[in-house]
Design a protein around this nucleic acid. Structure first.
Lengths: 329, 329
DNA sequence: CTGAAAGCGCTAACAT
DNA sequence: ATGTTAGCGCTTTCAG
């Protein structure tokens, strides 16, 4: 900046004004400064700028997901990034890999870089460690899952209700032995889905068989193995509810076409499998967009009480969820 | 920091030493400082820290992809982020959406935040605008695609050869009317794949029919429409080469099972479609990991001449690419 | 319309 | 083992 000022024969203050497009600079001077900037390839240092303008925004937000490679998270992140970019912000991204320690590391890296706010898909566990940062003005929005003990804007879907409907749908097609396969039951969404499953069975007067519930399936192959185990049992399920997209893919590896199935979360090619897969679809783009809008509202001064936005889900019937319970099964 | 110093009854310098775990602080004093830090919830300001330690690293890298929601890019980004995190770095992410102007905006946002380096999946067009930043020490690595006119480390696969092999595979199964469907032909990877297609036909002595080549298919539905168009023609193709994963999904929407197909890029459930889809698989995780390693080597002083790492691809035969050319088609 | 001085939070370099 | 001084690159504040 000093170099630019020298080359243009002005003070650094004038350069600063030009760079920031502030009024009060003679057009002649401004042009000379512009030329010097281009000549030297000068670019404002956002780091130094930020330091002086205390209380101002870094125009940087943090985005914490479980794993960017997951299609749901990827679509979610993409949508949030879109909104951020439209607002001239840049996004720091990090993955928790469902590990609280790692999540804390990532969040510490965010706050030490003075992000204006962050969107979290929180892992299980207390998030009270965020309170000091929040007290100093870092805004937090949760998406997809609630963070226990954190009273912040949250964007979710009604997982419980959606699963209750899905299981009810299977019951309506004659199923009574319905398996539930999910990722770690500590994950908020999965706990909710599991509850919906339990409630639906209770409503239908079907006793819960713990042998039909498998948790902790973190990769597709876990789910495939679980299916194999279930089917080898003396009284196998006639229908399966896959708790998320990853489990769904694993289930599809081994599930015989005659066994009914509904997956939580839509996925690419679900309609090209045989039979086409009935799913509970949720909209990751809407979740990401909504969360980002909520965050920016907070960043720009919204101080209303935290609210929860519940986005709709939709049961998309494609065939796999409408298979009848096999006679004798 | 001043507050911490006051509370602990020491100078800010001592606080700085404790925060940075530097030697030369009495254990007694250190403990007092630690207590003050916790009491006040103090966290070092990475922004201010960075300013003074000029020439030091921000421990932040930029990652520019075409679109995070694309499974290939998501897996790539996830792998790169993993490496960065292991090294205590944080990742700024941005999407170009295949738009040079937007790419430049994102890159400017990166450099103004003084990233130590960045990994780019570059869009088409000159990237000479990066030269000034590179001259001032911002390291750049390209992945997946080359950036014309930019002499930097690059991680790619041999798209041309891979497609030549794939088309040869179709020819070996009797196909002579092979369609090529791709995204915008300005994208480097697609140009390469297209060249491989042309070369393979030439090797087989098959004249190139421009009517069998469709470009500019950006979303799945574009590809689906293109397939419909091709099949309605008087002399339709007996085999289709899908230029990327997105096109592949679109093709699968409408392609009759009897038409052979090979897709560039593996995708989830490719083996569950009927017939299972033969693909040219590349490894996005390896690409992301390699690119990140190259970048960190540069950041930590590697000044050897830029090199290109070419990662292997693999033709995975699953059925759709081994269908015979229908007699009379 | 333009500039000089001060200082943001931190740390390198040099005392003590 | 601890403190003092100065300054990173920029912008706020106040004076011309």
């Amino acid at each position: 900046m000093k170099d630019v000022a020298r080359l243009a024969g002005v003070s650094t203050m004038t350069v600063s004004r030009v760079v920031n497009g502030e009024a009060g600079v003679g057009p002649e001077t401004a042009a000379r400064v512009e030329r010097a900037i281009r000549g030297l390839g000068y670019q404002r240092d956002a780091v130094a700028r930020q330091l002086r303008r205390k209380g101002q925004l870094t125009q940087t937000i943090g985005l914490l997901v479980d794993n960017v490679a997951d299609p749901f998270m990827a679509a979610f992140a993409s949508a949030a990034e879109d909104v951020a970019r439209q607002r001239g912000n840049v996004v720091l991204i990090g993955s928790s890999r469902d590990d609280l320690r790692r999540e804390r590391e990532v969040i510490a890296a965010f706050t030490s870089r003075r992000v204006d706010g962050m969107i979290l898909i929180p892992v299980e566990g207390s998030h009270r460690f965020l309170l000091p940062s929040m007290a100093t003005g870092t805004h937090v929005v949760c998406a997809d899952r609630r963070a226990p003990g954190l009273d912040v804007d949250t964007v979710i879907v009604d997982n419980r209700d959606a699963v209750r409907e899905a299981v009810g749908h299977l019951v309506a097609h004659g199923h009574r032995r319905i398996a539930f396969l999910g990722d770690r039951k500590e994950i908020w969404t999965l706990a909710e889905r599991r509850t919906g499953y339990t409630e639906a069975l209770a409503e239908a007067g079907i006793p819960l068989d713990p042998g039909l519930v498998r948790h902790g399936l973190r990769v597709a192959s876990d789910a495939a193995a679980a299916v194999t185990g279930l089917l080898a049992a003396p009284d196998p399920p006639t229908a399966v509810l896959a708790g998320n997209d990853i489990v769904a893919v694993g289930v599809l590896e081994t599930l015989p076409p005659a066994v009914a199935m509904i997956a939580f979360g839509d996925f690419v090619l679900a309609d090209r499998i045989s039979p086409p897969v009935t799913v509970v679809s949720q909209d990751p783009v809407a979740i990401g967009t909504t969360a980002a809008h909520l965050l920016f509202a907070r960043i720009h001064g919204d101080t209303s009480p935290p609210r929860t936005v519940t986005l709709p889900t939709r049961l998309i019937t494609r065939g796999s969820g409408e298979l009848p319970a096999r006679v004798g099964a």
